[in-house]
Computed example of a mutant assay.
Amino acid sequence: MPAYVVFHDATLRQIAAESPRTLAALSTVSGVGEAKLAKFGQQILETLAVGED
Rank of each mutant, 00 (worst) to 15 (best):
V5G: 11
K36Q: 07
A16F: 01
A38Q: 13
V50G: 11
G31D: 06
Q43H: 11
R21W: 01
P20H: 03
L48V: 02
V50M: 13
F40C: 07
A10V: 05
V29R: 09
L37Y: 01
S19Q: 15
H8D: 13
A16N: 10
L45M: 08
L26I: 00
G31T: 06
G41F: 04
K39F: 02
V32C: 12
L26A: 01
A10R: 15
A38S: 10
L12I: 04
E34R: 14
M1R: 12
F7W: 10
E18D: 11
G41E: 06
L26Q: 04
F40R: 13
E34V: 06
A24Y: 04
S30T: 06
A3W: 12
L12S: 06
R13H: 14
T11W: 04
L12G: 09
G41Q: 05
A17I: 09
G33T: 03
P20S: 01
A49P: 08
I44Y: 08
T11D: 10
V32G: 12
D9I: 14
R21Y: 00
I44C: 05
Q14A: 15
T22F: 05
A25I: 02
A16H: 07
M1S: 15
P2A: 08
L37W: 03
V50D: 15
L37V: 02
D9N: 11
V50P: 09
A49D: 10
L48D: 03
S27G: 12
P20F: 01
L37E: 07
A35R: 09
S19C: 11
A16T: 07
Y4D: 15
L26N: 04
E18N: 09
A17H: 06
A24H: 07
A17E: 11
D53T: 07
E34K: 13
A49N: 09
E34A: 14
L45V: 06
G51Y: 01
I44H: 06
R21P: 00
S19R: 15
L12D: 08
T28L: 08
S27P: 13
S19A: 14
G41L: 04
V32P: 10
S19W: 04
E46V: 05
H8A: 14
F40E: 08
L23C: 04
F40G: 04
S27Q: 04
G51M: 07
E18P: 09
M1D: 12
T47Q: 12
K39V: 02
D9F: 13
G31I: 03
A35K: 11
I15Y: 01
A10W: 08
E52R: 11
A38F: 03
A24W: 02
A17Y: 02
A24Q: 07
G33F: 00
F40H: 15
E18F: 05
T47C: 12
A3K: 12
S30H: 14
E18A: 10
A3T: 14
T28I: 02
S27H: 03
G33P: 00
V5H: 11
H8K: 15
A25R: 07
I15E: 02
E52S: 10
R21N: 05
T22D: 05
D9R: 14
A3M: 11
V6A: 14
A16I: 08
G33I: 00
I44E: 01
E52I: 06
Q43A: 08
T28A: 09
I15F: 00
I15Q: 00
